[in-house]
Design a binder for these strands. Structure first.
Lengths: 356, 356
DNA sequence: GGACAAAATGGTATCGATAACAATCTGACG
DNA sequence: CGTCAGATTGTTATCGATACCATTTTGTCC
């Protein structure tokens, strides 16, 4: 049996491994712990002189305040949770950046998670997040499991759904209609003379925004009287560039006279364009292709890609601001509200009609 | 003056806004709070029957455990912190994904931050992270401010530096030599007959990996006797595709007979290639271009881009595993160690010599 | 100089879980 | 049937900060 008296400190390394507490800093300075606590918050009333002495001591000792202790007694975790489908998708990482930027200097920290486009994973993540008692939560989309909804309701914190307009919003919404955005793109291209439209993008419930774009496409093509829409779907999200290439080929195989192909995202559009070029087809002369999302690549590549520009960063920023407002108001005055973010068609070379 | 007796609950909404505690769940079930606490952990000894009853109550009441309270007394936050330069860069988001995946089912949660390639921002973030008492921390690169180093040392938690081999590692390292990787690319292309090498990528201290690639380039070109390297730099990281395009033009203006241009990343390489094509130059016939990082785009675009494939995901995964090992060992046996991750040259169309 | 408001500081209880130890229960075995 | 180890459950103190209220100090004004 081991000697029970052996040192218990098993920290990997680190100089003086004693754990400093506020009380020790206080003793060192000759004030009470409460005063040290106040010194760490700007608004609290501590004389400049005392604060200075305390901060010098903090520096000298290398003290780092422990927020988890504080949040227990103050009942404010200082966390905001945000869930995005994928962190590898620059549209969503732009949104994450918008959130982070809006949170700067608010004393709030972001807890980020990614759901992999799966509602069950979202449910798990929501639970994991709620265990940290976030003061608010930002979600992508409006499609959640029942249990997730119940947990969110019970948590009693402001919720912001983003990137789309849910049929039954939980609380606040910052987004746009993916269906209408895609519809706008169809109409814009139709006004340029295109008639035979194709579409690439799944129907899967995993990517609700993708499904909405697809239905917006089909509905609009129908309304315009351009016959039944030619839509094919493929794999599960996230859709790769390569899949975009495969998809455009099966689409053209099935409907060889397609004039223009709209894609669920720029990434699949890019893959489609590259595959066409590889096969010797010219874009837009032989086939026009458009995307969605206005990724960096679309303005750079050759031909540049017609797309819908979405204010990804703004969605994140506004969602965070909305949350901050709600927190400020203590949840009283602020009614649930839907904030519509803008989008616009960006016409580029890949659908240039004059090139035909 | 307001009536002090008015309800204090200002929660936004939420059904029964009472905050449940473990004690209440315990009372409901008819056991002690301690037993409920045990039921939440797999290993703890609670009879199956009791656990089942407790979990049913948890479900019925909608109780969500409060980890911040638990971590205070258990002195284990359940957090791992990770800092990456940018979340929009898919190389780094792959690394983040690797970390997250490795943490799955460990009960540890990731606190992610991005430094914007700035050491001062890294310092701030490290402090913000340490306030949450993470059990370990994963950093990108080995370049940190003095204060950051002191804080990390004082924190006494395992540190893993990634994506490069620091001269003075803090603790653990999972990465590769960016300089040698670039050197390998130069030698490989030299063996194909290329002689007049150009380079695009900054020297800034912000992007140490970029600087290492650059110096690896210059050193190798020099060693091979191919005269002084032709290197130009531009803007601050993160480098955009567009900047890649601008850079290749100024490089060719200055050294018009350059045969092959190596870029600090695939993104700038892509921008460079597109700009060349836009100007009517053929790649690789007129000018060969290579990148670094093997982003998705490089295998898809036309011409496909020669690059260095880096195990981004594996870096994250291994870094996390290393951390878990260190935590397991309680910091005893595990010496600081450098784990080298692989990389390899991927030759593609953009440097295809036979096309000339 | 005294009165009084405002500023600055301190003391104590507490947030909600878990560690550590104590107590009780269960079943196996001689 | 008694004993004892192991399984199960309970009790109390505590993690490290902050809320709340009490107290002391400072400054202003007549």
């Amino acid at each position: 049996m081991k000697n029970e008296d052996e040192p218990k400190d098993k920290r990997p390394k680190g100089g003086d491994a004693q754990k400093l507490t506020m009380a020790e800093v206080a003793k060192y300075v000759g004030v009470s712990a409460m005063t040290v606590s106040r010194a760490f918050r700007q608004d609290a009333s501590v004389s400049e002189e005392t604060r200075k002495r305390i901060m010098e001591a903090v520096d000298a000792l290398g003290y780092v305040i422990d927020l988890s202790a504080g949040s227990l007694s103050s009942r404010r975790s200082g966390f905001i949770a945000a869930l995005v489908p994928s962190i590898n998708n620059s549209n969503f990482s732009d949104t994450a950046r918008g959130i982070t930027d809006a949170l700067e200097n608010t004393g709030l920290q972001l807890l980020l998670g990614y759901t992999d486009y799966a509602a069950e994973k979202e449910e798990k993540l929501i639970e994991a997040m709620l265990r940290r008692r976030p003061e608010g939560i930002i979600l992508t989309g409006g499609s959640h499991t029942d249990r997730a909804r119940r947990m969110l309701d019970k948590a009693g914190i402001p919720v912001v759904e983003t990137w789309e307009i849910p049929e039954e919003p939980i609380n606040h919404v910052v987004g746009f209609s993916n269906s209408e955005a895609m519809s706008l793109l169809v109409r814009t291209l139709a006004s340029q003379g295109y008639r035979r439209f194709g579409y690439i993008g799944g129907t899967t419930a995993r990517d609700t925004r993708g499904s909405q774009r697809r239905s917006g496409f089909l509905k609009t093509v129908d309304e315009l009287g351009f016959g039944p829409g030619r839509a094919i779907s493929f794999g599960v999200p996230p859709i790769t560039m390569e899949q975009g290439g495969q998809a455009v080929m099966s689409l053209l195989e099935r409907w060889p006279d397609t004039e223009v192909v709209l894609c669920v995202s720029d990434l699949s559009a890019f893959g489609a364009i590259m595959e066409c070029k590889r096969r010797g087809m010219r874009v837009p002369e032989d086939i026009a292709i458009a995307g969605f999302g206005d990724y960096e690549i679309s303005s750079i590549c050759h031909p540049s890609i017609t797309t819908i520009n979405v204010d990804c960063y703004g969605i994140g920023r506004q969602a965070a601001v909305r949350l901050l407002d709600a927190l400020q108001a203590g949840g009283e005055a602020t009614g649930d509200e839907i904030i519509l973010t803008g989008y616009r068609v960006v016409l580029r070379e890949s659908t240039d009609r004059s090139a035909r």
